[in-house]
Amino acid sequence: MIAIPAAQVAVGSPESHLDTVAAAQHYPRTWFEDETPQHTITLPAFEIDRTPVTNSMFAEFVTMTGHVSAAERRGYALVYGPDYWTTMDGISWRHPHPDLDAVTDRPHHPVVHLDHTDATTYAIWAGKRLPSEAEWEYAAHGPQWRPWPWGPSWDSARANTAEHWAGQPIHDLATWKAWWRTHYAEHGPAPATTEVGAFTDGSSPFGLVDMAGNVSEWTASAYLLYDRHRRYDPSYHAVADHGHITVRGGGWKSFRWQTRTSERIACSPDYSGPDLGFRCARDLPETTANVLSLIR
């Protein structure tokens, strides 16, 4: 784990940044408006995992506890088919593709197909917890706000995203779908995850890896609007009132804009998917936190 010092932290995107995002891709600015207003909060020191939880790490937890994931109990999971989301029997964290054993074939890839309860249960077993949304963002962009963990400019070589696999920029849905159909024809529903830490040039200022791309990540925070008196797209008000959880980071099939440090996704707690994982955090003892503040 990596110790993160206490700080006053900017959370959310500057208005000017959202103008840039809106002008550069096909979604309207209203799709990103929930990242505003940018505001400053005070966070105590904490620790957070350098990498997402891997298949081998989750397998150890399952061996020790007998935990059965929600997808395994259902007998099926959500995958992205040739054209859209669909369900597939037998898919779970252990078998993200009918011909894949995640533990044997991909031990160091991030674990996927886990809902919020699965992730929280693992964290408790490990003596940790899920990070809050604000902790996650601070760990991703560091003391000063930046749109990607490594800096102000996008670089497809620094993160596992759709643009990495496509080998070209993707700014609209038509280009994404053209890439995806080719990708699916060759790989089917197998997640295009990579070993955690494979993109070391994309590390955050604190040295965390995969904070952009590979898998998006559960947080511990309910999805709430930054300003309840502000009018956002009606869909944001709806999900904020119905117990959704904030997910951060973007995954292997994301556009560059979905992997920004302040991008917010709201998911139902019982959702799981092939590009959603998690990492853990924990509080620092007061003495350690005080020493860390002096060092920093």
Rank of each mutant, 00 (worst) to 15 (best):
L130E: 08
W176M: 11
C267K: 11
R74S: 15
W180Y: 15
V21M: 15
D101F: 02
G81E: 05
H97G: 03
D19N: 12
P107I: 01
W218E: 04
S92D: 07
W218R: 10
A10D: 13
S153Y: 13
T175Q: 10
E47D: 08
G207C: 00
L43W: 09
G127N: 02
G273F: 01
Y271N: 03
A220M: 08
T161I: 10
L43F: 09
P169T: 04
P98S: 01
T193L: 05
R94Q: 13
R146F: 07
Y271C: 04
H97C: 01
A198I: 12
P52K: 05
I4V: 06
F255Q: 10
A71S: 14
M211H: 10
F199R: 11
Q258F: 14
H39P: 10
W176F: 09
V21R: 11
T36K: 07
K177H: 15
A7E: 03
T288E: 14
G167F: 06
H183E: 04
Y80N: 14
H17P: 08
Y76W: 14
Y27K: 13
W180G: 15
G75N: 12
M1G: 03
G127C: 04
D19C: 11
A212G: 07
A240C: 05
A70N: 08
T104M: 01
A119D: 04
D99V: 00
D101Q: 06
E47T: 07
G250T: 01
F58P: 06
H67T: 02
A123W: 03
T246N: 09
R106F: 06
A59H: 07
S204L: 05
A102H: 01
I2R: 06
E217W: 12
A6Y: 07
R230A: 09
V62N: 03
D201R: 13
A71R: 11
D233Y: 11
R74N: 15
T121L: 01
A192H: 08
S69Y: 00
W252F: 02
A266Y: 04
H39R: 15
P44V: 10
A198H: 15
G243K: 02
S235N: 14
D283S: 15
V79F: 00
T117D: 02
D101P: 04
N290R: 04
T175G: 12
R260Y: 09
P285T: 13
Y232D: 13
A102R: 05
H141G: 06
D19V: 15
D233L: 12
E72C: 03
W176H: 14
H113E: 06
R50F: 02
A238F: 15
P285G: 06
T65I: 01
A140N: 08
I4T: 04
F278S: 01
D19I: 14
A45L: 02
A3W: 07
Y76M: 10
S272K: 01
S272Y: 08
G249Y: 13
H113R: 00
